[in-house]
Design a protein around this nucleic acid. Structure first.
Lengths: 243, 243
DNA sequence: CGTTCCATTGAAGTGGTTCAAGTACTGTGG
DNA sequence: CCACAGTACTTGAACCACTTCAATGGAACG
């Protein structure tokens, strides 16, 4: 049973830009189908050139790069509403891999029709560029985190960001949310060793700031977490387009 | 004396995608003028919303973020051919600052006309998205560098990347190129302290791999540098569009 | 000719890594 | 129903890559 764009549960969330009736109709025609994958599946492979582009509809995943040494750098976490495959769409190949952490459902678009979008729907093309710019901004922020912040600070920052994203798409219940990653994933995202990440998690837990256990993140003290993460607590997130 | 797009010295470099006659004409009409700034000028300010967009024509600069603590993370280095201000163009504001390191000349575009580009020139809009995707890819690579590589490795990597970019735009003479940054800039880009960056530079110098002095980078042993940087030496860089 | 900016170097301290071992849980086959 | 194998998490201990502090040298500049 494929979700119609009209009934897309993401579309109407305030974090996403409002779509006009026509846009919904176009997106529906642009949508090719749905892909359902098991946890652990590689959705897109570095250096490959996927014929399909996706938008995550349900479930969580992660983007990562593999270094020559075999180490892995997680670039960011994929949550519902995220567009996957832009690089494959415009450049000649992907420069990172995407993997499903949980079972996932993705909207499928045909790469070849991307050009149609640019030719006939400039507003949507604009949105796509917007998405790319947001992605760039997020990576820039991550870069600053890895470059300048300590272990606990990085973890606190990751928790705040993930929680805020979760809240934006309605994945939170109170001050909790599902966070189905492994400690190794987080460590790989933050440029920390597994051991050290584990110890910093323990610190946050035992001082009563945040607990991450059994795939669930519980924030006990959001203010303190923000302070540790060196974030001001205001931050009304800006709406972004959904494709 | 303003450079005509037709005579743009960058356009014909193999690193940039070929432009059709019509595209050159359109770019010329899109170009609003030129901006010439002194070394040290801030071209774009984080959280501002510049009415203008630029393409670097001559000179070098850098993009950076300022953290709440006042520290600075350099996101990357700006060289001729780089587009500046995409975030201001599509999002509501810039998320990083851009500063001229040397005197610079920039092509100026009117932000308000960006929409025209999307509406009437889908190929160019596509190119703009492409550029955003390239930017994203570069930041992803930087993230992996900061996350997983040691001090010397980071510096070696930066040198190879900068030299390759320099070669692509014809800024190199033999195995040398001008690199007018300060050690602090490099340290801020690589997430190292100034002191440590300095010591690693000394190591590369004294083992005869690369020397960076008086704003000039000299590579004595490119192969070794690549090995240190964990890069395979092939890497024909892909052509990218110029806007 | 002092001031300022940048590069350089030494010394001390530490945040993080690596190694190594142990626990806890889950699924699988006998 | 139990043994075991596999995976994730936890913890301690030793080490070292990097940071911070502090001082010096050299070039540029008014």
């Amino acid at each position: 049973m494929v979700t119609k764009c009209r009934n897309c549960p993401l579309r109407t969330r305030p974090i996403f830009e409002m779509m006009t009736e026509n846009e919904v109709i176009f997106m529906q025609s642009f949508k090719n189908g749905e892909l359902v994958v098991d946890a652990g599946t590689t959705i897109m492979m570095e250096a490959s050139n996927s014929p399909q582009l996706y938008t995550a509809l349900d479930g969580m995943g992660l983007r990562y790069k593999t270094l020559l040494s075999g180490e892995r750098q997680v670039l960011n976490f994929v949550m519902p509403g995220d567009f996957i495959g832009l690089q494959a769409g415009v450049m000649h190949e992907m420069h990172h891999s995407v993997e499903a952490t949980t079972d996932m459902t993705l909207c499928v678009f045909d790469r070849k029709r991307l050009w149609e979008l640019f030719r006939d729907h400039p507003e949507r093309a604009f949105d796509l560029t917007w998405i790319a710019a947001v992605e760039e901004h997020l990576l820039g922020e991550s870069l600053a985190i890895l470059g300048r912040m300590s272990g606990v600070e990085r973890i606190a920052r990751a928790f705040v960001r993930l929680f805020d994203r979760g809240a934006a798409i309605g994945a939170t219940q109170g001050m909790e949310m599902p966070l189905p990653y492994k400690q190794q994933d987080l460590a790989d995202a933050l440029g920390l060793s597994l051991v050290h990440a584990n110890k910093m998690l323990k610190r946050l837990r035992s001082e009563g700031t945040a607990t991450w256990r059994n795939g669930r993140l519980i924030i006990h003290d959001y203010d303190r977490l923000c302070r540790i993460a060196r974030l001001e607590k205001d931050a009304t997130p800006v709406a972004r387009p959904l494709i």
